[in-house]
Design a protein around this nucleic acid. Structure first.
Lengths: 221, 221
DNA sequence: GATCCCTCCGACCGATCGGTCGGGCGGCAG
DNA sequence: CTGCCGCCCGACCGATCGGTCGGAGGGATC
């Protein structure tokens, strides 16, 4: 395990909880251990009894968030439904997960950049994070490829569709003030979440719909 | 103007250039003025003759990047083509802009979070940034609404489509190692850029295609 | 030659950074 | 009662943070 004292989780969970919110808001470099400690109601030294270093605390936060999401997405893919219905459930699960834990989207988007700085050799705990990401990507990639093979989706580049799916969900819920200005209302209200699900599902239904070959080819400038 | 010495731009441009790359890689909090100065071949004090503070340097970097992109996207929308063709050109322009300046995507995605910390009252230079963003969003929103009104696109929520477009482009080019692992190759090669354009255009063509009313409604879980 | 201004610099400031250290407190086993 | 151990703390460490200050150098102007 990446931490030291995992016996009684009460303080440890509290630390992870407040650190998640803080890292989401201002990033790894922008949040000091003193601040985390104060928010958790502890002395700074106490943090180092639960996590060996700041990097390990950060990786533990990241792994917890990814774990929560990966589990839900895995469950959404576990049924035996048709690919299009599975994709709907996957989308619902991802949107729900991001909306229920508002820090998640920003944390993950930040992690996209920040944990590239942490050498896997130097911080083996990052492997757990990488595995979560890999599992998540493998799941949705498999679904898309099955759907294409079965003729439920049109032929497209699986990784590109995955990128678009992730971007559409994570960027949206990470967009904060900008997104709220654009929408003219809250991002995280029950209604806004419902709308985002519906828009995403409609969009990917149309965007992936299998249909006869079209005359159009991808011209670029 | 947000800076002090704008007469001879040579040192100033050099600072903006290296700061852009550094902020993109490690964010505002993660990059110190000493590091920027060293990368620009200057003493740290010299930075403060061009920019009053670290925040103003950051905002100037952001404004420059947004200006470059906003200009290109504005030009793509200026023609009198049909909405679908205009959207293609807009997509091409955005992808080109993000791919040609590899730091842009990450910088913008980071800015999504980081400049919410800079109070507009306290840092009036941020208004220029806000205006650039507003101009950019207004342009693409107008195009989408024109297209829907003209029947070229199906009815959908304009802000949600904008979010999906931006997410699909910016997230992709900001995804770094993760994206390259997923694609199994470079993100920024000429071929990869061409592919991303084609995939995005195909996807949004299908996703926004006007077609007879469908029986499907957005169910959610 | 004297003056001015722009650019640049090294030295320095107080504050904060991540991390260490020695010890205090309380429950639990002997 | 005694000793151990998990948890916590304040004090402290060297390093680095953003920012200031006084002055050096050089080109243009008079």
């Amino acid at each position: 395990m990446a931490d030291i004292g995992a016996r009684d989780g009460s303080s440890r969970d509290k630390i992870l909880e407040v650190a998640e919110a803080l890292y989401a808001r201002r990033g790894f470099a922008g949040v000091g251990m003193r601040e985390v400690a104060e928010a958790a109601g502890l002395g700074k030294s106490s943090l180092f009894h639960h996590f060996r270093s700041k990097v390990q605390l950060y990786l533990a936060v990241l792994e917890r968030v990814l774990g929560r999401i990966d589990e839900r997405l895995g469950a959404a893919l576990a049924s035996g439904d048709a690919p299009a219905a599975k994709l709907d459930r996957w989308t619902d699960a991802l949107v729900d997960a991001l909306a229920e834990q508002p820090a998640s989207a920003r944390l993950l988007l930040r992690a996209l950049f920040e944990d590239e700085q942490f050498d896997t050799e130097e911080w083996p705990e990052g492997q757990a994070v990488d595995q979560r990401v890999e599992s998540l990507l493998a799941g949705i990639s498999r679904l898309l490829e099955e759907g294409m093979r079965a003729g439920a989706f049109r032929r497209a580049s699986t990784p590109h569709v995955v990128q678009t799916l992730i971007g559409a969900a994570i960027y949206h819920f990470a967009s904060g003030e900008l997104g709220e200005t654009l929408l003219g209302g809250p991002l995280l209200s029950a209604e806004a979440v419902r709308t985002r699900k519906a828009e995403m599902k409609a969009f990917f239904h149309e965007g992936l719909a299998a249909r006869p070959a079209q005359s159009r080819s991808g011209d670029d400038g």
